[in-house]
Nucleic acid binder design. Structure first.
Length: 730
DNA sequence: TCCATTGACGTTTTT
DNA sequence: CGTCAATGGA
């Protein structure tokens, strides 16, 4: 068979990885070095050259997007159906295993997935029930504790240090939470992985079956695996499975979420005879950008060691803009984007990256003002919307009325006169009897434990759910969806909201019915015995959907540095590169390699840029209502000075900014502007005879040539020669 | 039960 | 400063 299509266009290390003989392989793939291509070609190589059955391959990614992309590209390359290939996220694969082996995993057949929001609500309820003061025992921290333990593979009863009162309290909450979930058949994200691991541990025959079947494991973004994922993987590989992992220790930015970079090193230690291949040739960025990235990341310790290089040109210098304040920064960035567009480039080629999501606001304001279309990544996703989750909760109750999380969500939505007191009473009953709310409700009604009025209201809810269940049992999913929305009168719950708000909600519900209507039970879900409803609900939780309903055509891209991972743009702005913001203060203070992770985040940001990279920092930044004097980030000082070009406001103001096509001569290293012998302070109010009142933004030059930039409230921003301007302090 | 005001809080987020 | 959730009066 001719396999040249698998190897053509690959460089030597890529080819070595794709064609690696028997055994485990670690591919250290630098940013933009073609890692997805290697992964997909390896997969195709195994099938077409190694004659491995598609059933014997499992490919694991972290996001649904990555999984989808891999499946698509593999399909194109192989020219066969990718159905038998097991490609998915860790969570998706774990979920599938649990559906198939629900009995062995000690789960009810109709178990439901809790998303982060469901989990938080359930925990809040438990904290209240157990009498914890929520200011001292914050829900978020409980969530963090439990998920953290689960990520490490620990159950409540595994945890030591119970002599420590704080730990004991968290463990108690963890334990209660476990009980609720088990009773209601609820499984959170971390639980999916933990259960899948326990399935291996407790059911050797199941493990053996999969060990025999899965001959080849391909893992993407290996530096992002956590302890439980690694353990699961190791067990599945056993002594016979061959593991091919791709990752980049320099791009590990999710340590705070339990990811363990150390797994990259552990892999070489734990698996015998690992072949390590480095992909260092970069096909994305210019030489200057790569040199800056290399220099920055070399400040980290304990790296596996990689040096990116390119066959392409040096390109433009990296530009550093010292903004007077965050307003000036936003103004500058948007102005540069305008120039970019004026030169005929597209808005979508430009990205603004920042450390914290709150930073997007100002940029949005300026973009709006300039009528430049933009899109902010992140934020609420379709299946996470309040009204969508409300409607889904009714659907969940149809599937399983013992789903306490769903029941609590909608028992009084819309209001049906079931007040807090009644619900509290029901919770007590449920807790004392150790049963679900649904069971407790029915028991209370039967034994007439509730006051007459409350009983009537609760009975109404029970009848509603039972009625829906009976009538809609055999309906199509779309009709069920519409049915529960109609019968529950859910929409009336949004009546009192501002009109615009409630209209969007109704629109989203219509969209949800559409989604349910056009949902086709995927074959792989049918294969594991799921019905349409189960499959729909699981997918709603596991793939919460696009962040934004409609994707704009040609928009400037705004996102946090974290969400930029894996993407690339011709023009990248990295904003707010200041000590305290990036690296973030919390990371500076916290020990444990947090600072190195911030540096990796910066490395990720730099390597997103293809042609132009502009970093900016503000000298004064208003945060939480107070003005902060900032120093440029240490990361800027770690970049090679000869690759940098400092942008002075004058350049930004008067001369069209032409992206340099040849190396730009280096300018001195950026230093914070010190107070000099200028007659005004930066930010000081001044008055001009003709232009009126304004604010000093910047100075330039010295002696009689000293120029001053003033932002006049009526005349806009102007550069004036200080000697002639006759400015007066106001 | 509802709306308005007050108060606390402020890093990153996918599954 | 701006957001979101909790609280409290009508």
């Amino acid at each position: 068979m001719d396999v040249s299509h698998l190897l053509d266009e690959l460089n030597d290390p890529q080819r070595a990885a794709v064609t690696a003989p028997e055994g485990h392989v670690l591919v250290l793939a630098g940013a933009g070095s073609g890692k997805t291509r290697v992964l997909v070609h390896r997969l195709a190589w195994l099938i077409q050259v190694g004659h491995v059955s598609p059933l014997g391959i499992m490919a694991v990614t972290f996001t649904n997007k990555a999984a989808g992309e891999m499946r698509e590209r593999a399909g194109k390359l192989l020219g066969i159906s990718t159905r038998p290939l097991w490609i998915g996220t860790f969570h998706g694969i774990a979920h599938r295993l649990l559906r198939m082996h629900w009995k062995e995993a000690r789960l009810p057949e109709n178990f439901q997935i809790l998303d982060a929001d469901d989990q938080q609500r359930l925990l809040r309820r438990i904290l209240r029930e157990e009498g914890y003061d929520e200011s001292q025992w914050p829900v978020r921290q409980a969530q963090w504790f439990i998920n953290g333990r689960k990520d490490e593979g620990e159950r409540a009863h595994h945890i030591e240090h119970m002599d420590h009162p704080t730990t004991a309290a968290w463990v108690n909450i963890y334990q209660r939470y476990e009980e609720y979930c088990q009773r209601g058949g609820l499984v959170d994200f971390a639980e999916l992985l933990l259960r899948a691991h326990e399935l291996w541990l407790e059911q050797p025959q199941v493990l053996q079956h999969y060990q025999r079947r899965v001959q080849h494991l391909l893992i993407d973004e290996f530096q992002d695996t956590n302890a439980i994922q690694y353990a699961w993987l190791r067990m599945l590989a056993g002594n016979t499975g061959q593991v091919f992992v791709v990752g980049d220790d320099d791009q590990s930015i999710y340590g705070w979420r339990g990811a363990k970079v150390e797994n990259v090193q552990s892999f070489v230690r734990d698996f015998p005879d690992v072949t390590t291949i480095k992909l260092e040739q970069n096909y994305r960025s210019t030489g200057n950008i790569l040199e800056a990235a290399n220099a920055l990341i070399s400040h980290n310790t304990g790296r596996m060691g990689k040096k990116l290089w390119t066959a392409d040109e040096e390109g433009a210098a990296i530009q550093i803009y010292a903004a007077y304040n965050e307003q000036d920064e936003a103004r500058f960035v948007i102005e540069q984007i305008r120039r970019w567009m004026d030169e005929g480039r597209k808005a979508e080629e430009a990205a603004i990256l920042y450390r914290t999501s709150a930073q997007s606001r100002l940029f949005e304001e300026y973009l709006l003002r300039e009528s430049i279309p933009y899109r902010v990544y992140g934020g609420q996703r379709f299946f996470e919307r309040l009204e969508v989750k409300d409607a889904l909760a009714y659907l969940r109750l149809l599937q399983n009325p013992h789903d306490d999380a769903a029941l609590e969500r909608v028992i009084n939505k819309p209001t049906r006169a079931i007040g807090d007191k009644t619900i509290a009473e029901l919770r007590i009953q449920a807790r004392e009897a150790g049963v679900t709310l649904w069971t407790a409700i029915n028991a209370c009604l039967q034994q007439q434990k509730l006051a007459a009025r409350a009983a009537g209201a609760v009975q109404g809810f029970v009848d509603l759910i039972n009625g829906m269940n009976e009538r809609m049992k055999d309906w199509s999913l779309g009709n069920q969806m519409q049915g529960v929305i109609d019968d529950s009168d859910l929409i009336s719950a949004y009546d009192k909201e501002p009109r615009e708000r409630s209209e969007t909600r109704v629109e989203n519900l219509r969209e949800l019915v559409n989604a349910a209507d056009s949902f086709i039970l995927p074959a792989e879900d049918a294969d594991v015995g799921m019905n349409e409803l189960q499959s729909f609900l699981s997918r709603a939780a596991l793939e919460a959907g696009e962040t934004q309903g409609e994707s704009w055509d040609d928009c400037v891209q705004l996102m946090t540095l974290h969400s930029a991972k894996g993407l690339e743009f011709p023009l990248v702005f990295m904003a707010g590169v200041e000590e305290g913001l990036f690296p973030h203060q919390r990371s500076i203070e916290e020990a444990g390699g947090r600072l190195e992770e911030e540096r990796r985040l910066c490395y990720v940001g730099i390597t997103r840029a293809r042609e132009h990279l502009v970093m900016s920092y503000a000298e004064i930044r208003r945060m939480h209502g107070t003005e902060n004097y900032c120093r440029p980030s240490r990361f800027i000082n770690e970049l090679p000075a000869e690759r940098l070009q400092e942008i002075r406001p004058r350049v930004a103001q008067n001369r069209p900014w032409v992206p340099a096509s040849r190396p730009t001569p280096a300018v001195a290293r950026v230093a914070p502007v010190k107070g000099q012998e200028w007659p005004f302070r930066l930010g000081q109010g001044v008055e001009h005879r003709k232009f009126g009142e304004g604010t000093v933004l910047a100075f330039e030059g010295s002696g009689e040539h000293t120029r001053v930039q003033v932002n006049f409230s009526n005349a806009g921003t102007k550069w004036l020669v200080l000697a002639y301007a006759n400015l007066e302090a106001s």
